[in-house]
Simulated scan of single mutants.
Amino acid sequence: MEHYERWIKTYFTSEHTQKTYLSALHKFHNKFGYITTPDELLDAITTWIRDLRTEGYTPKTINNYVTAVLSYYRDQGITIPEDTWRRIRRRILPPSKPSTFDKAGTHDEWKRILSHMSLEGRSLFLFLLSSGCRIGEALQLKVSDLDLEADPPRAYIRPEYTKGGYGGRVVFYTYETRDAIAEWLKLRLILNKRAPKRYYIPKHGRYAYYTEKDDNRVWPISVSTAQAILWEALKRAGLDKRDPRTGRRLIHIHSTRKFFRSNCGLSDALTHALMGHEGYLDRSYLRQNVNRAAEEYKAITIPRLTIFERTTTDKMEILKLIAKALGVNEERLDTALRDALSFEDSIMRIREMIQESLRSNKEYQIVEEKDVQFYLLNGWDAAKVLNDGRFLMVRA
């Protein structure tokens, strides 16, 4: 057992992978003992696959367990011939597909869930929902990896944080996420200052002193702790629903990535690149032109992934985008805002420009995404995707 524990800790950094592989190897060796030849491995693996299926393990779990065992023995120089393994995989190994019906969660559902979290949990899950990051990547982020001053805010996912260590990337997140993270970092600083430097041991009748770990991660918690935060919030929100067949939760940590992918509104290539899918990073302009990706995220994605009520500043940005889409010159906009006497005066000036543009010969309509196709088929053009996710349509 000590040998495969060392092997796991040496070659795998993900906490989730370490736990899965340790469980798989422990179960396998309890049943079959240590293997010394390819023939023994072949017999044991085929028997184990059938046993796991009989015991009701999900296809995805079976595949993960088998991969763990084969990877371990491959590194020990014991392998099953490729042709033989191909037949096993085709005939008795179930396809590795999720067997639980799960869901991404709606904006309203996530609002209810996040409302039952502490500032630490809320800032973490807002980041996951708006960045598309994996939980393992997010929990390795250091404060120095964040750029809260950028517009939109961004984080740098280093290669060593990623699944398989494949390529680092930049990700973006919403303004409400930025604000929540900033508040959490302030609170963390206060909590760290108040942390006791010693503790009393009644058994020995004395104090013991300890040195705090230098943990400069944004969220210094484990994946299991993050799961517990989500599960408790789901219960409190009345959303702790399970798949009737497997008993697993319908909303779980991976649902945050599903939410991002379903709602971000970006092209497939950029979406996959932001999520860190291998094969898309090099093909997307995320790597070649980060600023272009940032502008698309700011204009299209931020309004779609914002969970809570928009601030007045966000509403100002929406009006500015509408004005620009209607042909209002940016220099004219800047002049009007600079000369405004107050925030309310700025809003009034922009609205006047919008009204003036709408009185031109062109006809405009602001429509929901579901209605865009109807307008396109009836001679309209899409002039702009607005900051709230709707479309500005124009017809001359």
Rank of each mutant, 00 (worst) to 15 (best):
R248G: 02
T177Q: 02
D214N: 14
N216I: 07
C133A: 15
L146F: 11
V143R: 15
R134Q: 11
T162Y: 08
I181R: 07
R194H: 12
D243R: 03
A155H: 09
E160F: 06
S131C: 02
R245E: 15
R206I: 11
A226T: 05
E212M: 11
E120I: 00
V171R: 01
A228C: 05
R188V: 06
A228E: 14
S144Y: 04
V223G: 00
V171M: 06
H204W: 11
L148I: 01
D108N: 13
W110F: 02
D243H: 07
L234R: 02
T225A: 07
P153H: 05
R245M: 09
C133Y: 00
I190N: 11
T177W: 02
S130K: 06
A228K: 13
P220E: 08
A233C: 00
I229D: 00
L119H: 03
I253N: 14
S222I: 09
A138G: 10
S224A: 15
S224Q: 14
L128P: 05
G167W: 08
E183Q: 15
R198Y: 03
S118D: 15
A155Y: 14
I181W: 09
K213A: 13
R242Q: 08
E149F: 04
K163C: 01
Y156F: 12
L250E: 15
L189F: 10
N192F: 12
Y173N: 03
W184M: 04
L191S: 01
Y209D: 06
L114I: 06
L187W: 13
K235M: 03
L128E: 00
G132D: 11
V218Q: 10
Y210N: 10
Y166R: 15
T211A: 09
L124G: 12
E109M: 11
G164W: 12
L185A: 09
Y209N: 13
R198E: 13
I201Q: 08
N192A: 14
Y199Q: 06
Y199A: 14
I135N: 00
T174W: 11
R206W: 06
G136L: 07
T162D: 00
R198W: 01
G121C: 03
